[in-house]
Design a protein around this nucleic acid. Structure first.
Lengths: 142, 142
DNA sequence: TAATATTTAATCGCACACGATATACTAGAA
DNA sequence: TTCTAGTATATCGTGTGCGATTAAATATTA
């Protein structure tokens, strides 16, 4: 039996489990990230930097889908923790460049074990992981 | 070619597209929800109430995967907007019961068109939607 | 029944997300 | 070259999320 309000039932939404799963996974990272003195958003920021040092904020924001209103305070915190340096580009004084400190580079080795622990806790088959990954990037890229 | 740092590349994470897609979808709701004077979290809260009026905060929190530290201020805002009433249970004075106001009930009819607009904007096939939905609930329930 | 344990919600502090706006710098056009 | 448009970052205010703690009410146990 269906009625005109079916469309606004919580259990018929796709947005809701996306939101709830995202929150849940971020929560599940906390015990691991506490050891590294990182929040989740700081962690994914460090991931970008581990892959590409001396990136500017704009490029960083494009990779993370975040803008300066989120990144500026976040980068300041990473700087206070001694993981990154922030300086202005000499080519273009509007841009800021983010570089890893020695401490920030060292952190990389401590992070290696985290993804495995998290992904195991999700209890998904390889197929499910692949499909989920592809569908999510399809949504992101559209 | 693989190396020991592959596991901590952003593009090899499942958590990241989950986080980014969740944020993206919540952003995409904003123009629709502005018309209803609701934030995204307030919207999913209203969805629960449209399905089950006079629910207590605990049950509400279980459905939304949220606790009082998030719900208490959120419910106060919905009360200020005139969409809900909050009162103590007479059976158990620890519990608070949330009920819809007339205005809150009326809002339901304005919300009906939103899910279709959002889901179309994701450009997914039926199969992809089904698989995504099932996988997300598998993660939530494990 | 009195002491203790459990449950429910509220409060606190911190760190995002994000729309809107401001500011500083650069590039392009007249 | 000067005026204007565009770009990159910072700032502000609001509303979450969430771990930790507190407070109040109820349930359990000695």
């Amino acid at each position: 039996m269906s009625n005109k309000y079916d469309s606004i039932k919580l259990e018929n939404q796709l947005c809701f489990p996306l939101y709830a799963v995202s929150n849940k996974i971020i929560r599940s990272y906390k015990p691991f990230l506490d050891k590294l003195n990182l929040t989740y958003t700081q962690y994914i920021t460090m991931m970008v930097l581990w892959g590409q040092d001396n990136i500017n904020q704009k490029q960083l924001g494009e990779k993370l889908y975040l803008k300066s209103n989120t990144l500026t305070p976040l980068l300041k915190k990473l700087e206070e923790k001694g993981y990154i340096n922030i300086y202005k580009s000499s080519n273009d004084e509007r841009q800021i460049i983010i570089s890893l400190t020695k401490l920030g580079i060292q952190l990389k080795d401590q992070a290696i074990e985290i993804p495995k622990a998290i992904s195991e806790s999700m209890h998904l088959e390889i197929d499910e992981i692949t499909n989920l990954y592809n569908t999510l990037y399809k949504i992101l890229d559209n």
